[in-house]
Nucleic acid binder design. Sequence first.
DNA 1: TTATGTGAACTAGTTCACAGCA
DNA 2: TGCTGTGAACTAGTTCACATAA
Lengths: 209, 209
Amino acid sequence: MKFLKIPAATITRLSLYTRALEGLIKDQVTVVSSKKLAELCGVNPAQIRKDLAYFGQFGVRGVGYYVKELLFDIKKILGLHREWNLAIVGVGNLGCALVAHENFTKQGYRFVAAFDADPMKAGRKLVTGLMIYPPSDMQSVCRDKQVEMGVICTPPEFAQDIANRLVDAGVKAILNFAPTQIQAPEGIKVENVDFSVKLDNLAYYLTTS
Amino acid sequence: MKFLKIPAATITRLSLYTRALEGLIKDQVTVVSSKKLAELCGVNPAQIRKDLAYFGQFGVRGVGYYVKELLFDIKKILGLHREWNLAIVGVGNLGCALVAHENFTKQGYRFVAAFDADPMKAGRKLVTGLMIYPPSDMQSVCRDKQVEMGVICTPPEFAQDIANRLVDAGVKAILNFAPTQIQAPEGIKVENVDFSVKLDNLAYYLTTS
DNA sequence: TTATGTGAACTAGTTCACAGCA
DNA sequence: TGCTGTGAACTAGTTCACATAA
């Protein structure tokens, strides 16, 4: 079934399922039905079964899913059974907050490099001890530290240039916090974290309803 | 046409269009075709025309759209012709970064209140001068400052409780940065900004491709 | 009996293709 | 002629409903 095209939404939901499952483990729950898990995640039970069906059969009919096993399997699917090396570009307020954010490390994402165009910052270290390099060092540092994902926290006008540099440095996945659309060549995955868009959604909702 | 159910994705794209249009204004461009705008936003031209058609007719056949007018109209649709009062809950690294973030204020979003459960923080002021209150004051402060949107930046285990308090305080829209699914009653809009999910998407991409 | 796994039915969202108008 | 506005065709994604298996 792996050859089927898997909806992007399915991957996003798998990520949600891992959280719910981790919560269940904390509560000592060992078995869960798609119905129960669906409630926790706010989705349809059939949706969960469909999502999982893309990758195999993980449940026991008449019983449900073994929580620990399912969590392990989903993490494996998502590639969360290993650690990932990240680089942050732009260590302003937001960038620093992200590096310090425990949710990254807890999940196996490690910041191994930092970059900033500000000559006052480049050459210094973050509070975490992480060295800040100028963007001109991106290629060598990224290869050296084996950076696999780049996180862009620069002002929007520099985001595209930084993305290009990251791609040149061999980075294949980019998480973009700058409020702008980034163009990247085939084979490079860009995800946008765009809270101004989310706020605009809220504004629209409050305006119409 | 206003009575038609409008896809959530349409609203999100409208937000993207405003950015592109602001860029065009900066570049002194006065007229733009759906084709050109589509290129800038990375979408299909028909998509743009469809999106706009939900709200009326904004273009001139054979010509295109007048940039300034269209931007004004879209902002009006989204409710961005006015300011919005926000409260931040949880002023850790991320919360502070968000309050300081210029992109909010530039777009008409104003933080008018801050809350934190930490007794070391409550009673103090943020660097911006914003007073930090304990969560117990939420109801009175939110009504007093006319808070319309709440931004949750607490650890995930407190997010639901904070959401409940915000709702009790009359807040109808919530932007949730905590990596957990929040339940809210009918009539309350919750948007999630979930970068761990986005990272997991990248991990999946790098793992499979 | 219970809950998974899955084809079929349905729903939503996108793109096409062209009529209509400046 | 050129580009918008929009019904129709298409594509993707979700939910239903039930056969299947513990």
